[in-house]
Amino acid sequence: MGKQGNNSFMGHIRPRQIRTGALRLRATFCLGGFSFLAFIVLTITGVLLLFYYQPGDRAFASLSELNSVLPYGGFVRSLHFWAGQMMVISVFMHMVRVVWSRAYRPLRELNWITGVVLFGLTVILDYSGYLLRGGQESGAAATVGQALFTSLPGGQALATVFFGQPSPLNGSTLNMFVWHAFILAGAVGFLQLFHFWRIRRGGGVRPL
C-alpha cells in the first residue's frame, strides 16, 4: 500500500481506469473469480473444521462426530467438500478459457505459468483433503500416492515427508494435515494474490 503509484499493489487491485473489452462477460466468463470465491469459502469452512478435526487415528471418528453431533457441523463439512470439488472444476475451466482466448502468450506468460502451478496445487489440495477424511478409501488412495512417489528417484524420502506413515486403513496423518491446511493452502493463497496483481498489470478483468 502506501504510495498509490503505478506499481503499488493496491493501485493495481483497484485501478482508476480499465479497458472496455476487459469488462465483457465473454472475455472471462468469471471463471477465475468463481475459483477465488470457492477458495474463500474453503478458507472460512476450513478454519471452522480446524476447531474439531483430529488428524491421525481419530480422523474418521472426529468427522462423524462433527457430522452428527455438532450444530451445523454437517453443513460446514459439506460446504468444504463441495467448494473443493467446484474449485477443481472451475480452475480447469478457467485454464481452458485462457487457452481458448490465447491469453497465455508473452506479456501474460508468467501469469499462465503461475496459473499452471496453481492448478497443480489445487489438485494436490483436493487429493490431500480426500486422505484427511481417514476412511478406508483414503487409506487406499494414500497407498497409491505413496507408490507413485516411491517410483521417482529419491522418492522414498519425499513420500515420508508428504505422507508420514499412514496405516493402510487410514490415510490421515499429521504430515498430510500440515501440508493440506497450512503449507499448500498458504502457497495457493499467496500465489493467487500474485496472480491477480499480474492480471491487473496486464490490463484485464472487471473491477469490483
Binding site: V69, L70, P71, Y72, G73, V76
Partner: peptide, 13 residues
C-alpha cells in the same frame, strides 16, 4: 449465530 453455536458445541457430549 450459527457459527457461534458451532464453535460452542461439545463434540463428545
Amino acid at each position: 449465530y450459527p457459527v457461534s453455536h458451532y464453535l460452542r458445541a461439545k463434540e463428545n457430549q
